[in-house]
Design a binder for these strands. Structure first.
Lengths: 325, 325
DNA sequence: GCTTGACTTGAAACGCGTTTCATCCATTAT
DNA sequence: ATAATGGATGAAACGCGTTTCAAGTCAAGC
């Protein structure tokens, strides 16, 4: 494989001139420019991008840390990131973690090693203090609200979103309210738990432990939830479901086994997935795609200019009332 | 940022010794080994991975070319790739193309530049001859059946899968059969079109142009299909739908507007998405996740050993009969 | 006629880890 | 006692593009 020095020899010019031509810099005579391109042609030359990365000290690569890809939430976020990355000529390096701390640390180490110029963290398990340590060495953008540390973040205020839905339910007269969530840990989940506790306390209702359904990520989980719900002696009259996929699973299974929604069970989903629209599920619309876009733009702006108008950006949510609640 | 030479100076050893220690090679005295690690600690050293890539001539990165991410089909394939990549210590670089030829070529150029050790192509628009030219320079694995060229491929035989479903419909007495597809171009689509033409010809039925519904990728598209179907004077009695998402859209909208399935319209989906199971959609199960896994393994085996047991691998499909057909 | 500035061009250093090769010492085998 | 062997270590080359700096040419400005 030919390198830039072979090119220089072939074209009868210096290495620096070749570099100038290859990168379209001015101050090269037309004659030499032509000779270099002919040499490129003749030797079937391609830049070794690793050498470029090493020399430039930057890669135009952005890392994306996320637990799973095959999930509507995360694939929407990546799609948003990807769209913007494409636009600004960046590549995306994927770090699928499955919420495994080892893998999250591996991604952060890669960042330190300068494998990428920055990292977007869609969701994570390790503590913030870890990110805090790493952010001194390279740019990191988080996709969740953080109060204790000063991070670059773009986030959905899940406390507000949850509280909004809860108030709506309370106003409709519900008191036996439960919720379904993906996992209990993680800042988003904790914000929702806090909203749940706060709102119920305000209206004088004691939350029931068993009305909180854990591990709800996919359609199938909805089926499980309704089965558990059926088996309860005291059932919640309404469920907040943090994923429309799961909400759809609940609604479909409820239909199948003859549970009337919303009469017997009110369902409010989150995301505003096309599936929710199709099934008439009341839902809180969450701007996942936009989240990805904004996260990338924030990182990009930081990388290119070294400063940003503001480090935190909150994205709005909206309650979309349909048939299920 | 400290480099390996600083380390050497700090530890009072040579650069090569530092390298040996860092990479766990033998033939280093315990004493010097300790000194090097102490220097690493003291100088807060991290390898510059770009330099490693350049020196080694390989990156442990595999590229993935695909049109969209936010789609159940592709996100399942990536998930499969990602799982295996993780297992073997490779990273994934994403090339989202939107079926834009420019972007596909860009990805291939990146491969030539040695940005990654190999490329997995999930779907594409450019002609095979292009891939043929590039595969001389670097390993490429395609996820579709190719007969004219000698590629590394892992594929689902879409001709067979489609024919299987068609025969099933024909045996059930259907003659007015249409289908819904994502896009008309592309080898998979052409295989399906060929199966469609062949099977219908064999049973003496003339295919109707308007019974082929194009641009069917997402749930919402199913709604559109059923609307168009309603507006037809001569309607197909059965539809093959190449995505369960779209099939689900059809089924749900049909339910909503009172079209009886399968009495008035038989639906056979593809994928065997959880949604299909939930909705009782008869479907042809396609092993997307496995496709991703096998594609990675093929590439990996090639990269590590320089040869493979066989360059082509076909994955099985299975008709899952449920309520809609 | 001399200075100034724009334009060209190349040598060399730089970014940084890996790897080869030669050297030197201390054991074993003969 | 001597040759062969294993272990330890460093100098230097290598992979390859970018960038800085010095130097040289030529025409416009004073």
């Amino acid at each position: 494989m030919a390198n830039i020095r072979d090119l220089a020899k072939e074209a009868g010019v210096s290495v620096s001139t070749v570099s100038r031509v290859l990168n379209g810099y001015p101050y090269v005579s037309e004659e030499k420019r032509k000779a270099v391109w002919e040499a490129v042609e003749k030797l079937n030359y391609t830049k070794n991008i690793q050498a470029v990365h090493l020399a430039k000290g930057r890669t135009m690569i952005v890392g994306v840390m996320l637990p799973y890809i095959h999930h509507p939430y995360f694939s929407a976020v990546i799609e948003g990131i990807s769209k913007e990355a494409l636009r600004y000529g960046y590549q995306l390096l994927l770090f699928q973690t499955n919420y495994d701390v080892e893998r999250e640390l591996e991604a952060l180490e890669r960042l330190r090693m300068k494998q990428m110029d920055g990292l977007i963290v869609c969701s994570h398990e390790v503590g913030w203090e870890i990110f805090d340590a790493y952010q001194e060495e390279a740019p990191i953008v988080l996709c969740e609200q953080v109060t204790e540390y000063d991070f670059f973040t773009v986030y959905i205020d899940h406390y507000q979103a949850f509280a909004k839905a809860l108030h709506y339910l309370v106003k409709k007269g519900h008191r036996r309210i439960g919720y379904c969530i993906g996992r209990r840990t993680g800042p988003n989940s904790q914000a929702r738990e806090a909203a749940y506790q706060d709102v119920l306390r305000d209206v004088g209702v004691t939350p029931q432990r068993q009305w909180i359904f854990d591990g709800c990520l996919f359609l199938e989980d909805g089926k499980r939830v309704i089965e558990q719900w059926m088996a309860m002696e005291e059932r919640p009259s309404a469920l907040l479901v943090t994923s429309d996929q799961v909400a759809a699973g609940i609604v479909l299974e409820a239909r199948r086994i003859g549970v009337r929604i919303p009469e017997e069970l009110t369902i409010i989903g989150f995301d505003n997935d096309p599936l929710a629209e199709m099934l008439g599920i009341t839902t809180v619309a969450l701007p996942h795609f936009t989240l990805g876009e904004k996260a990338f733009r924030l990182l990009h702006h930081w990388l290119e200019t070294g400063n940003v108008p503001r480090k935190q950006e909150e994205l709005p949510t909206r309650l979309v009332v349909r048939a299920t609640g």
